[in-house]
Nucleic acid binder design. Sequence first.
DNA 1: TTAGGGTTAG
Length: 907
Amino acid sequence: MLKLLSGGRLLPNCKSNYFPKPFCSIRYLRTSSYSNIPNFIQISSNESGSNDQGIDIDLLFHSSTNTHLAKRLHALLIVLGKVQSLFISTRLLNLYSNLGNICLCQQTFDHITKKDVYTWNSIISAYVRNGIPSEAVNCLYKMLKYEVKPDFYTFPPVLKACWNLNDGSRIHSLILKTGLEWDVFVAASLVHMYCRFGLFDAAYQIFTNMPYRDMGCWNAIISGFCQNGKGEKALEVLDEMKLEGIKMDSVTVSTILPVCAQMDDMVQGRLTHLYVIKHGLEHDLFVGNAFINFYAKFGEVEHAQKVFDSLVIRDLISWNSIIAAYEQNNNPDYALNFFNKMQMDGFKPDLLTIVSIASSIAQSRDSQSSRCVHGFIQRRCWFEKDVIIGNAVVDMYAKLGDADSARKLFDKILLKDVVSWNTMITGYGQNGLANEAIDVYHTMVEIEHVTPNQGTLASIIPAYAHIGALKEGTTTHGRVLKTGQLLDVFIGTCLIDLYGKCGDMEDTMKLFYEVPKSSSVPWNAVISCLGIHGHGETSLKLFRNMLDDGVQPDTITFISLLSACSHSGLVEQGEWCFNVMQNDYGIKPSLKHYGCLVDLLGRAGQLEKAYNFIKNMPLQPDASVWGALLGACRIHGNADLGKLALDRLLEVDPDNVGYYILLSNIYANAGKWDGVNRVRSLANSKGLKKTPGWSSIELNNKMEVFYTGNYSHPQCDQIYEELENLMTKMKILGYIPDYSFVLQDVEEDEKQHILTSHSERLAIAYGIINTPARTPIRIFKNLRIPSIIHTVPIFLLYELVFWEVPLLHLIKILQTSGLQVMSAFRASLLLVPFKLPSTTPTYTIAFAFASTCLRNLQLQVYKRRNKRMTTNDNAEVELRSFLSNRLDPLGQPSREIMGIMGQFMQV
DNA sequence: TTAGGGTTAG
């Protein structure tokens, strides 16, 4: 009975994993030095003349470990007249197939005149094994045409090869006709095929109806579920299998492990490891490789290493896995070290090795090796072989900051997939080239008609956020809504970041409440955005909510919190966070955390304390730490400490032009022009050039970019005319240009020119000309050197504008008051002057204000428009004390104002 | 004597 049902064969599957291809070499097959005749022939003639007695053909087949030897054997067999034998020629065909030479397979196959079912089965499996599945399916149809009846060896490889449901069903009905549907191999293949096409019910039905199931069948349904996104269902079947008393074998284990990793189920994985040890499967190659990958995904590289060490036999996948393990866990040096060891062990790297190595090289910032990798791949023509390798190298160049090389290679990739596009978009984004990223995105969607996936959105939305292209970002948001991707935590977080950075806190919070919040990622984004806009207290409140929700804060959470405290001047709270992070969550502060704390103390004016803090740091302070101190010195005009900070900075990061500019600005503000010159000539002698500042504005879905003093814009004349116009109006209002912000020692009229032709002014003028009244104008600036960016609490500016404080006073007050001028990284300013007398040229005020006080700032200037306001939690208290201290002549705030303030507080 | 299903690395 059993014999019948299983297709006549009930032999256990005895393939050995230890010696996958047990070829042994034999001495007399080595190449002879004096002949171009196959050695086999010499052997045969020397030893036994024309008689082939004494030649072990089976041994010769086993010993033909490369195509060269196989050809010699082929020649010998021709000489011996053995190729007429259908059996021998089919065996040759299989030999070439094993050696991966599909051309010779085809030739051998074509030379066989009368092909039997063995021959057809062999060529079919040759096509499947050598990656030409479509030909395998064709062969089935051809053999039917030649009236050769397929058997139970024919169907499994054909089912494996068929990649559309039509062929699948057709083959299924053929199987039914031949009555082979319950052969365990055939049935397992059917089950797997239906899973591949997502017909899980059909697959499961076949599986449950099977009169006899071997391990292969169980594994077929489990792997079918696993590989097609039905991990949970797979685990259910696994339980069912255990209930029937069937034990997992090495195939089951290696199938199930990736699912455990995917489902974040460390416990199941560990239990499986115990099972494996108990049942003596731990030295199995597949199992071992699967465990290396399993542990690597959980960041447990030591365990991965232990498994690797315990493997008796290793293959290329073992090496690739351990290399990837180190690469993915940010240990590029170990990855590269294992790469060398692997080669010493005689393994040649393949495509996937190089993918990991490219990433490791990017991590270790080794530009020189990046060229070697590029050449290595080019010489082997691997770029043509698989798109993934091209993508990896584009990514490598982008991560090394070489966007040009990345682009050159990207352009050369002929068959780009969606990952190629995503990589290029991300690559530009990572290098601050948001406009280029957006260009690539447009080409991808509009010209190449590639459908964006989650990865695309996750790379393009940050690019929009970077340049403040809120409108385009909103369009993308619409696309996300249409495809129902909103619940995706990555895209949700990108959108939170976009709205947050553009200052739209209401939409930010709305989104935040829609996105799944089980991980720290969306919390970090919202805490950081609130911090940027000076809502430090709200950031802290959300942090508490996060803890109440049982979400574990991570290192990024504390960076966001510390910088939020820093931007809101919450020194005590910031120090509290720094302690909680270490004591309650065991997170060791990184250089970034130290940088934030120095920034916090520095901005608050506690320069000495900040300096002492640096001196007592357990880590070697880096550029970000000294940079924070230098920035604080700039704010508080401490040139001596600034000089000291710069000296340290030049030791750790000598090529960053930003620091020279900072110190130069400190000297310039103090009128020490000799200091300015000294710093500038130092920078020049090192060949450093200032990054040109630009501002951008988005109009009619197009980004316009302006550079300082630029005259190339088509509307240039109108822009400068509008600027003069504004200047006149402002002067009438009492505006006196503050040249202390022109940090160059030039004549007064030249200073005025420099001040009026700043890129953000050009962009504002362009915006005013080209938009109707009551349209918000949103300007973004590229230069965002932390610590020199100032912002003012919005409520305060609103208040001052409302009271129609003369502009001169306004600017002076804002410049001299230490209380209200707060610093912010990527800050944005909202001017929302509703209820103003209709004659007040609001935008002019905003413009003057921005130009004099807020040069390095992302600026949102709203023309007169009733719109909600964002506010600082301390707004009212600060405002009251500010008004009572500084604005005596204007009296106390009226009830009306308090009412408006109340509205702000509700936001 | 040959050939077949189900497993691991991005």
